[in-house]
Design a protein around this nucleic acid. Sequence first.
DNA 1: CGAAGACTTGAAAATCATCAAAACGAGTGG
DNA 2: CCACTCGTTTTGATGATTTTCAAGTCTTCG
Lengths: 236, 236
Amino acid sequence: MNTLLTEDPRREAYRPADGDRAVLAAAVSSRRSVGPRRDMVRDGEVPAGIYLMLEGWAVRCRQMRDGSRQILAILLPGDVCVDPPGRPLNHAIVTLTPVRYGVIPYPEFGETAGQSALVAALWRGQLEMASIQREWIANSGRSAHERIAHFLCELFARAKACGLTRGDECDFPLTQQDIAEVTGLTSVHVNRMLQQLRREGLIALHARKLVMSDGEGLQQVALFKRGYLDVGRVQA
Amino acid sequence: MNTLLTEDPRREAYRPADGDRAVLAAAVSSRRSVGPRRDMVRDGEVPAGIYLMLEGWAVRCRQMRDGSRQILAILLPGDVCVDPPGRPLNHAIVTLTPVRYGVIPYPEFGETAGQSALVAALWRGQLEMASIQREWIANSGRSAHERIAHFLCELFARAKACGLTRGDECDFPLTQQDIAEVTGLTSVHVNRMLQQLRREGLIALHARKLVMSDGEGLQQVALFKRGYLDVGRVQA
DNA sequence: CGAAGACTTGAAAATCATCAAAACGAGTGG
DNA sequence: CCACTCGTTTTGATGATTTTCAAGTCTTCG
């Protein structure tokens, strides 16, 4: 059976866009149209709300320093772009075809019921995770050297935010095999790249301990910008 | 200034885990401990709720058919795992160190206020997006051939769910350069891989139209399982 | 028709994988 | 304390995948 082509009888019930599309469309406060290959949201712009794709194709697209681009997501009708409110996007949203979209004001999670503090906390967690995942997707456009450097920067920054670091040092329970499984490389190649990073004086990694000998240098190698880890409050 | 090591004065206010950690911890209904390198949630298991990392390191980890593994996320204390309720996970959650974690029952979005239908719809959109992003991360462990095949399968399935397909055909506004920017390959290599897919009789791609000549075969090449696109209802 | 963008081709070079083996380290039991 | 094991890290040689560069053809569209 061709599962791409045949109808899943449960699809109507399960596909979010089916039941929810009306709910989302009803919440739209303003509608806009854009031509093909144009910016819906520019890189660095603060989103005006939640964007709902009504018609056409678009992409989330990061412009790399070296001029190359990395597409982070494909947006089809019914898709929503929920980004941390009040914070500049670290990539652009660009149309592929002519697009109609709506803007939904950010809902207010904070005030109403006791439940909603939990919901707001979950939202922030989810937004942070989405942001990190996009950064991992961007890794597929980077070389092994950059990829590993970026991963180490991210992990150290996150560990630091958890209070798991002491100065420029932190526990690091991943084996080189684990790093390979994160980055999609072989453990042999990871080993050689780590040696290079050590030779460059950027890190020390030994006995389950990571030392950021030259955190600044490592960030430059990785083109790491830590902003994506700060999703801020849903409620400004 | 080393932004990895120096304190961002706004960090306290912005880092989700800081303010929200207490809120999340208060919602935990049961706590558990696991040893290092053990399954917190097995592949194919239905999650018991939202998992909150309290202590230790863990990973989301996909077991590939060929025995290799791909790590999809790193989980640190304060992180939450929010997965579509009532649906089996398509990967495992595995500890790296000894871990303490809590389980938070899924909050109920559907019933209370008018606002919450919107919130529930947004949640489903967000869960679907997170699921797709993890699949893109898994792509870094695949060859160019598989990667492109997988991307085409996903896009066709999503277009179909939007009603944008006619039979085994759909509009396809991406250039080969765009596919290269999605997959992290060069457009030259994408071109050659597309030729191979055509030679294998799997697809036809011409004049902004994609035809799934052999959708079943393409899914096999891509190891595509469409389940990750169906996130279901937050409220069962 | 002309021009711009998209697709295709070939050859050479870099990156990364594979395979196999050795060295190292931590932990265990004798 | 030593011998032993097991998992991890390291090394070397070889080959496949993928990139780069450069040019050519094909489409589309004003």
